[in-house]
Design a protein around this nucleic acid. Structure first.
Length: 519
DNA sequence: GTAGGGTTAG
């Protein structure tokens, strides 16, 4: 009698779970929740899991977490759903925390568990843990799983492994499907063994659009733009991601015109761009100062209702700023509801580039008040603004705060900004002393900043010193000669000027000849 | 009821 009742309840809860799933699949998460709340007596573990997974799929990780905390009993699937949810919502720390908690509660990991955890630790830069988790997988007999295998390939790739390591993990997988092959191609490309990647691509039993996209992306990663384009043109089908990979590849390699041309081809092919595509295209407009095209992109975003996410809007701010329309940059910036680090960097960089020192620092303070932590790029902009505006003390204070307040180690660019700052202000001694304190070999940019300042203030002694250092790094740098000859000219030493001009002509000719051969 | 591979700033 009891058994019959149990069976009835089970079948009722199965149909409840089916309807829940139906709502979730059709994007009606609120309806799903209503049904869930109405059916308290019929819920089983699977009901809870379905609801939690629904929230995860809809990127409502907080709601998922509430339900997970409330549920009367959990099984291993509940834990796995949360692990995957945290991973996809970019909360890698919680994946690890949840995994530890899961172990404490006495659950054994499954292939789903390990796949999420391996990917999470690898993304967090704890690649050293990957071989350990691999060991766990072997002990549990899970290393032959496709999920674990693909995650391991990604994990080993991230920690700078050899090609044989990737191959070994791949060979351990019992029944390899197209996704495991794709992981292997991506892995080989990421560690730079392009030929091996191509060989394996040729040996794939089947290929899908992702396989081709992995190949194209791999060529781009390895700076083989023309190979990338050839494979791209050969693709049997292209989707929005494949187009975006190729367009952003051109953009990031400074080939802005080709990026824009390809974008036009994409539109003609009937594939709709998304926020990723448009962000790359906006950057290409920024790089090529194509204000007209950039404006068209902006208005088509407003018209077509593409989700204008924070990064896309930040790219637009950057585009307007680089194209010289700082007012438009400002107004787009102000429409961004949740401004992120890229948004602030775009507007701060825009002000710095336009020479608005006071506005740069104003926005920088505003950014900090909003609780956004500046990064190394923010400081390049801030220090540039201080240098150009002659704000020596402010520049010094911000430079000092990099390490003391934000734990950011100054890089060559920051030192170059500071040398420029001191140099422009005529504090050549300070500039030279700062160069001595740089914890690594100063480069042409750093010496160039000092030399430029010496030109500005006609200081021969330091100028010669800087030019000599530059010569050691890069022989025949035309700027060095022209600045030195200017300084000599200011001092009335015309013989030296003529001598330098001659050397410069010879060196420049050499350089031109060189570039002819390369072209 | 859980899943792995390819897309955005400077």
């Amino acid at each position: 009698m009891q058994l019959v009742q149990l069976r009835m309840i089970c079948s009722v809860s199965t149909s409840l779970n089916l309807s829940l799933n139906h709502h979730i699949r059709n994007g009606r998460i609120a309806d799903a929740r209503k049904l869930f709340d109405r059916s308290q007596e019929l819920r089983d573990v699977a009901t809870w899991n379905t609801m939690i997974s629904g929230y995860c799929k809809n990127r409502q990780i907080k709601n998922a977490q509430y339900l997970f905390d409330e549920m009367p009993q959990r099984d291993v699937v509940s834990w796995n759903i949360m692990l995957g949810g945290f991973y996809r919502s970019n909360d890698k720390e919680s994946v690890v925390g949840c995994f530890i908690e899961m172990g404490r509660t006495g659950f054994k990991p499954t292939e789903f568990t390990l796949a999420s955890v391996i990917s999470a630790v690898s993304d967090m830069g704890f690649g050293v843990l990957v071989p350990q988790l691999h060991g766990n997988a072997v002990c549990l007999g899970l290393n032959s799983s496709v999920f674990v295998g693909s995650a391991l390939i990604g994990g080993y790739t991230g920690m700078g492994c050899r090609r044989s390591d990737l191959r070994q993990v791949f060979d351990e997988i019992l029944s390899r499907d197209v996704t495991s092959w794709n992981s292997l191609i991506s892995g080989y490309m990421s560690i730079g063994v392009v030929e091996e990647a191509c060989r394996m691509f040729g040996r794939m039993p089947e290929r899908n659009v992702v396989s081709w996209t992995c190949l194209v992306r791999g060529y781009i990663q390895n700076k083989k733009m023309d190979d990338a384009r050839r494979s791209f043109d050969k693709m049997p089908e292209k989707n929005v991601v494949s187009w975006t990979v190729m367009i952003s590849g051109y953009e990031r390699n400074g080939r802005f015109e080709e990026a824009l041309e390809l974008f036009v081809l994409m539109l003609n092919s009937g594939v709709q761009p998304n926020e990723f595509t448009l962000s790359s295209v906006a950057s290409a407009c920024a790089g090529s100062s194509s204000l007209v095209f950039g404006k068209q992109i902006h208005s088509s975003i407003l018209k077509t209702g593409v989700p204008a996410d924070v990064l896309l809007l930040s790219s637009l701010v950057d585009m307007y700023a680089k194209c010289g329309d700082i007012t438009a940059a400002e107004s787009v910036f102000e429409t961004i509801p949740e401004k992120s680090l890229p948004s602030w960097n775009s507007i701060i960089g825009g002000y710095a580039k336009h020479g608005y020192g006071a506005k740069t620092l104003e926005q920088f303070e505003r950014m900090k008040r909003h609780g956004i932590k500046p990064d190394n790029i923010t400081f390049v902009h801030v220090l540039t603004a201080c240098a150009h505006g002659g704000l020596v003390e402010k520049g010094e204070a911000h430079f000092e705060s990099m390490v003391s307040k934000f734990g950011i180690q100054p890089e060559k660019e920051h030192f170059a900004c500071m040398v420029d700052l001191y140099g422009r202000a005529g504090e050549l001694e300070k500039a030279k002393n700062l160069i001595k304190r740089i914890p690594f070999e100063p480069d042409v940019v750093v010496w160039g900043a000092l030399l430029g300042a010496c030109g500005l203030h006609s200081n021969l002694e330091f100028g010669l010193f800087a030019a000599e250092e530059m010569y050691k790094l890069e022989q025949g740098h035309p700027a060095a000669y022209s600045l030195l000859s200017k300084i000599h000219g200011d001092k009335g030493e015309w013989a030296r000027v003529i001598e330098l001009r001659k050397i410069m002509e010879i060196e420049t000719k050499k350089q031109k000849a060189g570039s002819w051969i390369e072209a």
